[in-house]
Simulated scan of single mutants.
Amino acid sequence: MSKIFEEVRFPHVTFKNHVARSATNDYAGNEDGTVSEFQMGLYRELAQGGVGMIITGHYAVCPLGRNDIHQNALWDDSFIASQRRLTDMVHENGSKIVAQINHAGAKAQAAAIGGAQPVAPSAVEVAPGVMPRALTAEEIAQVEDDFAAAALRAKQAGFDGVQVHCAHGYLFSQFIDPAHNKRADAYGGSVENRFRIVEETLRKVKAAVGGTFPVFIKIHCNAVEGDAQFASDLVYMLKAAAALGVEAAEISGFDFAKQPRDKRLYYMERARRAREASGLPVILVGGIRTLAEMDEVLDGGLDMVSLSRPFVCQPDILKRLQAGESSKCIGCFGCFSCYQKTGKRCVLH
């Protein structure tokens, strides 16, 4: 049997297998930020399908950081009861669930933030035609506090950990990427400065939730500008995260949606080198479809695999692979827009 189905242990949490459902924005939450019945059904299917580690779609840590009007939220204690209902259900169905917490930064949609001007590290356009304003140092400190408060609420709601989102062009991703961070203060310039907001946030999160509550990060491993230097910067950031007690980093890339349909293991080699140089456990996401590819990831020295689109296509894909079937996911980009446009979760459904 593939080693994918064996237990995997991190310092403060154990998962029943080496497979994570990568955070996937389903655009299906209630407009008040609570968990919808439709989402309860989605997560129930994933838990019953045998996923070891379910990572939720990103949860907004504050109203100004909300990505869209159907995004779930954790900026207030009133959300805890709704999330407790979700975690209880996932646990009853034999899986563990980690809350991804996030601030959309310059990607926040106007309708989701009441028409306010979005914020970012610098006044650099991310969403076409929308110019964000640069955060002040005082506002940066408040964002960090918002992440810590959201993490504590996740713990109180029964989650098995939190994942701080530092990828895919959202606020923390914008800070660590030189193409979007043009600051000249303590939060811009060197990798130490660009990663400062993440380090300070992780310290505050750990202080809020305690030393034994699992904290993960998700981070992109490449960059539009200065990609070779960013590979070196990634090692620094992973080492810093490890020193702060992060359990593992899920590694993705800024260009995952642009990868050719037939390409596989998009970020494998860079993730492998970063894992070896930093010592921090790594969860790889991007272009993983078969058991052979999953085993290749583990054989390459990485610690878990993470899938998104295959679970959109077939929530029970793990059981199907274990039974000798193949994934039906064709690697299209439809699931990034199908639901918003048609209500379909996958072009095959």
Rank of each mutant, 00 (worst) to 15 (best):
M1N: 11
I4T: 14
D32H: 08
D32L: 06
G33N: 07
T34H: 03
S36N: 05
M40R: 13
Y43Q: 06
G52A: 10
H58Q: 14
A60C: 03
N72P: 02
L74V: 07
W75Q: 00
W75S: 00
A81E: 15
S82G: 10
V90M: 07
G94P: 14
G94Y: 10
G105S: 07
A108C: 10
Q109E: 15
Q117S: 04
P121G: 08
M131Y: 04
T136Q: 13
A137M: 11
A137W: 02
G158C: 03
G158M: 03
G161F: 08
A167D: 09
F175E: 02
R183D: 02
Y187W: 09
G188Q: 07
I197F: 05
E199I: 02
R203D: 10
H220N: 15
H220Q: 15
G245R: 01
A249Y: 14
Y267Q: 09
R273H: 06
V282L: 09
V282S: 11
L284I: 02
L284Y: 12
T290I: 00
L291D: 06
M294D: 11
L298F: 04
S306T: 08
L307S: 09
S308M: 10
P310C: 03
V312A: 05
C313E: 15
Q322E: 15
E325A: 12
G334T: 04
G334V: 05
S337W: 10
V347P: 11
